[in-house]
Structures are given as C-alpha cells and as structure tokens.
Nucleic acid binder design. Sequence first.
DNA 1: CCTGGTCAGTACGCTACCGTACAGTGTCCT
DNA 2: AGGACACTGTACGGTAGCGTACTGACCAGG
Lengths: 252, 252
Amino acid sequence: MLSSITTQRNGHGNQLLDALPRAQRERILSNAQRLRLGVRTVLFEPGQTISNVYFPLDVVISLVTPLQDGAIVEVATVGNEGVVGVPLVPGGSLAVRAIAQVAGHSLRMSASDFLAATNEHDIFEELVRRYVQAFVGQVAQAAACNRLHSNEERLSRWLLMSHDRVGVDEFAITHEFLGQMLGSRRATVTLSAGILQAAGLIRYQRGEITILDRAGLEAVACECYGVIKAELDQVITRTREAPLDDRTPAHV
Amino acid sequence: MLSSITTQRNGHGNQLLDALPRAQRERILSNAQRLRLGVRTVLFEPGQTISNVYFPLDVVISLVTPLQDGAIVEVATVGNEGVVGVPLVPGGSLAVRAIAQVAGHSLRMSASDFLAATNEHDIFEELVRRYVQAFVGQVAQAAACNRLHSNEERLSRWLLMSHDRVGVDEFAITHEFLGQMLGSRRATVTLSAGILQAAGLIRYQRGEITILDRAGLEAVACECYGVIKAELDQVITRTREAPLDDRTPAHV
DNA sequence: CCTGGTCAGTACGCTACCGTACAGTGTCCT
DNA sequence: AGGACACTGTACGGTAGCGTACTGACCAGG
C-alpha cells in the first residue's frame, strides 16, 4: 500500500503541487507518502482532530455530512485539483466525514508537516488559501444545488465532476452509493441513470459506469457544474497570474 | 449612518472581538467604523473583490448563493458570533452574496486593515481561523439540511438562529423573504409559519415576528440548529482554553 | 377618504420525489 | 454446477412541496 515517492512528474500528479516550482515541491513532499485508497476508506470523521492531509492523484474523495438518522449527504468532492483536510489551526478538525468515493492514489503528509510547509513556502500557502476559498464556494453552491435542482441534474453534475477527477472514462460506482451522495433513494438514482443511459450519455452495469458523452451530460447537468469548475480552475490560474509582490514570484 | 467608536463594552459587541484582550481590541478597531445596515443591504456579490470586513453587532447577515434562474438559497447566517467577508488572500472574493437579513449595527473595517490585524495579533488570527473552520461546517450542515429536512424544521432552525443573533424577541421578516432564505415558496412558508403560530411558538403580523417559545421551536427544529450552534460556540471557548504560544505547530 | 402597495391566507391540480418491497440478473465462491 | 450475494429494474401508494392565482387585511401617502 505504501511506496516511496521521489519525483512527481508534471501533469500526472496533484494540480496544487504541480503548480509549485519543482524544488519547492520536492522539498514539501520529502515527508509525504504515496498510498492507495480503496473505495469507502474513511480519512476522518466530523470533529476528529486532523492528523493527516491528503493530496489526491487519481482518487476521488467525497466530503459528506452525516445526519443523526444515519443519512449522509455529499457537500463537496475533492480530486487532484485540491487537498483534503486542511487544518486552519493546529489541532483543528472539520465538521465532515472524508471518504474515498472512487478508489485511487493519493499523497499523504502529516498535518504538522503540512502547516510547517505553508509557513515556509509563501506560494504554497497562497495556493492552499485560494483553494480553501474555492472549496467554501463549492460547498455553498452544493447547498443551493441540493435544495433546488432535480435528481437528474445533480446526478449528471456528480458524474462530470468525478469524470474530471479520475481521468478515465470508466470507473466503479453503484447506484446505492450514488444515492447516498445525492441524498436520494437508490431507486431514484436507477431511474435517473436509466434516462441518461437511454439517451446514450452513459453506460453502466453492475457498479461499473462509463461516460460516453460529456457534452450531453453537461447539457443535462445544472449550472453548478460549470460554476464550481470555473471556481476551482481559478485557484491555479490566479495564483500564477498574480503572485504577491513581497513573495517570490511564481514565474521567475 | 456612521458614528465613531471608541470603546466596546464587553457583552454588547461582537463575540470574536470581545474575546480579545481590551488593548488589542481597541488597537484593531482603531480604523473601524460603526454603521447601521438596513434590511436587504447587500455587502458584496459573488466573485466581487472583498474590500470590507464586517463584524455584526445586532445585525443578521445572510450569505446566499444566487442561481441562474434568479432563485437564491441561504447557505449560512452570520451575527455577532462571527465576521463577514474574511479574505483568505489579499484581493480575494467569496462565491456568495452577503445581504442584511434583519437590520442592525455592525463594525466595518477595510480588508487590508483586517489582514494587517490578523498578521499582527496571533490570538486574533487564531480566532478568525477557528471561525472560518466553523463557518465551513455551518455551510456543510446547511447543504445536508437543505436536502433532507422539511420546510417546518428548517423554518424553526432559521428562526432560532436569527433569534440568537438579534438578541430580541421581535424582529422584522416577511414570509416572502423567508421563502427565499429557505429555498421554498412564500405560500409554503405561510403554511409552516401558521403551524408554528397555532402551536403558540411564534406570533407574527405584517412582517413582524415574535418568538414566544424557544424550547418549543427547538423541539420542532432539526438537529442542525444544535450542531451549528455547538460548532460556533467552540470558536470562542477553544481559543480561550488553548491559545497558541507562538506560531510554531502545536506538537513539535 | 380613497387608492395603491405590501403582506398573509388559501386553494387546486400537479410532479418529483419518498418508503417499501419484490423480482430479475450478473458475479463470485465453493 | 449450485448457491450466495450484490446490484439493478420496477411497481405502487403516499406526500411534501411546487406553480399559479385569487382574496382579503393592513398600512402609508396623496
């Protein structure tokens, strides 16, 4: 499960890390481990002190809010565009559960190493802060989306977001699990998924889903997909474009 | 609308500020203005660069996500327990609209003064960071709540949260506006509110609502009220209990 | 005093879901 | 091959809340 990491190649790692100058990236990652996260692995629970921070590579992590009756609802998705478990204060916690949605690989570092790295590398800190800001936006959009958009719209959005993050057209996910993410019944997911399949946008069988027509899915999905994507994309581009003056500029 | 502030008395100001030692608080507030925010005043729009930060005193600010079709949904409420518009990076923005829900007073300072204050005063920075962490939790809880809880539950939660923040039993709010916050029709709000009124928990007429029975409302409201309240309360208590000795990570 | 505007009450058909439940089908294990 | 299991398809009654719309009450201003 564990393997040592030496060098991350640009383009096949985590976008936040890849946005850093190579030397800084390797320095920051000197204490990180690469590991595989199986489906349904729980990284942390609500209120639990954060001990590790994860940079997804091709794994997809869902942040979900568990309710008293056992129901859970996804409030955000994190993949290689972000980082899971940013502790804003040492010893801090988050109010959500982090769970691997689609199995894959991730880099892990301790919360204290992470905080030390943000203190030491200003660009890294800025990236992380911008990501946190975008992350809040994602959760806010999800809050509105969960209230007002239909099952089919949200399912399409979810599929697109996961597709962006896993990097392949086929991945494992069951209707049951999708229902938990969307806060809907399994049968409702089956219905919506059936419509998407009949329209030729996806294909699935026994827990394996294939994305056939992204453009079609985007047409069905609610605006929230584009809003969230644009917001997350800006994390990297804005940091590159407008580095803080009193810090080391990114492109020197 | 503007009046100079000299000294904030403990207990009648903003809880984040009141948690600071008096000298620090006065220093931080030296460039702040006290101002009244009328109902429906918009503090900022999604994506707009944050130029000012607001510390509510008795005003209640709603953070809402506007959707393409014009609908809006509340994703968080901020009162004297928090702060509106924390810029995590200079020149940053938030993905939500901030709008005064119940009229009242607030302290305002520029984003740059705010950032300077967090850099200068470690306790202040820790308070703000803890608040941001709790704020994210609030939005996450709202995302789940919006999906799964009934109109009546959410209305009760909303009334309790506002009641906590305005500090009086009677305040102005219309069904129409409530509907926007809850992401429901005005008529649905009228129905739920009628039930609460019939049960003797509230009274209202022409936009003035009176809280009659808090305990009763808490029984009707979903768990989310308590979860969010506990999370926000911890911002102050945890900071008091475990202030940072310096900026180095806790367990090194 | 009348008028126009804001606000709440109510109604009626409609739809997108829910809860539950059972049957079918593919897959893996023995 | 047979059985156990996991996953999907489908059904059926129930309901919360929608869209629309009309009514009446209260209020401020001319």
